[in-house]
């Protein structure tokens, strides 16, 4: 496009502007990549080497510390727990969220707007602020130290935005398709499952990333509800681990690498989807 900011054919002032901006952006790229590289390199170094020669390369790439952290320090368990909690939460979010969106967007009735508003109210209300009644509720239900506690809360946390995004998409599907299916003898659930759901598949992908990343990363609710080591998720496990080994930097950098790298690798393969999904709630 002619409006592109390019060096070619630009005035001197514009060239200076482009250069300054490129320098600033490159600096931020370095500030992102170097600390991550240093983290991985440090995980292969001894404590002494990390402290005395922080910028040097490791002498050898031994996976011994990784084995310690993954097996002896319980990271494999934290990782599995996180995977389990995220998967189950997301399955429920997608099921309940798409059903609610269908019930809101595909029927016309008096309470329609009210129901929609009830769901949306959750977007503006920070769930963290309700931790006291939530704690008392979960305690009453006997779910402390049970992964179901955070699964239910993540479900509540994710439903409002899911309904907001999915109901918007579902409104765009022509009603004629539904009539056709009805004439063919489909009942409403079959229409939801066989007609509407396949058509909003791209939106489902957006919603999945939009909610799965914050759920995978969430710290606050697992911190409150999952105190026993057996059920801790990765962020909480990482926090405990940092409390116990605060002086063993080699081990700490290994733990951090294990916590950070899987997400990074996943992102490298699917960056387009991650960018689209994570910004889905804020972009029309």
């Amino acid at each position: 496009m002619i409006t592109d900011l390019r060096y070619k054919g630009s005035s001197v002032g514009k060239r200076v502007f482009i250069t300054v901006c490129l320098a600033a952006m490159s600096l931020y790229v370095l500030l992102i990549l170097y600390p991550l590289l240093n983290m991985v390199l440090s995980s292969f170094k001894t404590n002494r080497a990390i402290l005395t020669t922080p910028f040097s390369l490791p002498k050898a790439f031994s996976l011994a510390t990784y084995k310690t952290v993954w097996i002896d320090k319980g990271f494999s368990r934290y990782f599995t727990n996180s995977l389990l909690v995220t998967t189950i939460s997301m399955a429920l979010v997608l099921l309940f969220g798409s059903m609610a969106s269908y019930g809101i967007s595909r029927y016309t009735y008096k309470l329609n707007t009210l129901v929609y508003m009830l769901f949306l109210s959750g977007i503006m209300l920070p769930l963290k602020a309700a931790i006291i009644p939530l704690f008392l509720l979960i305690k009453t239900l006997g779910l402390i130290n049970n992964p179901l506690s955070v699964i239910l809360i993540f479900l509540a946390m994710a439903l409002p935005s899911t309904v907001f995004i999915l109901a918007g998409f579902m409104k765009g599907i022509p009603l004629e398709l539904e009539y056709a299916a009805k004439i063919d003898g489909c009942h409403d659930f079959a229409i939801y499952r066989l007609v509407v759901m396949p058509m909003v598949a791209p939106a489902i992908a957006l919603v999945t990333i939009y909610n799965a990343v914050p759920i995978w990363n969430d710290f606050f609710f697992p911190l409150v509800f999952l105190q026993s080591d057996k059920v801790k998720t990765l962020p909480v496990g990482l926090s405990t681990f940092f409390g116990q080994h605060s002086t063993n930097w080699s081990l700490l950098f290994t733990g951090l690498s294990i916590a950070i790298l899987p997400m990074l690798v996943l992102y490298l393969f699917m960056s387009k989807y991650f960018i689209k999904g994570m910004t889905a709630g804020a972009v029309k």
């Binding site: 099921l95 309940f96 969220g97 059903m99 609610a100 269908y102 019930g103 809101i104 029927y107 009735y109 129901v115 009830l118 769901f119 109210s121 959750g122 209300l125 769930l127 309700a130 006291i132 009644p133 939530l134 008392l136 509720l137 239910l152 809360i153 479900l155 509540a156 439903l159 409002p160 309904v163 409403d188 659930f189 939801y192």
Partner: peptide
Amino acid sequence: WITFFITPGLLVVGLFILLPLFM
């Protein structure tokens, strides 16, 4: 059908978002 579709979600939102707000 409407009840069937919206009830599960509404229960969760009511129990874990709106009730805690009033509590």
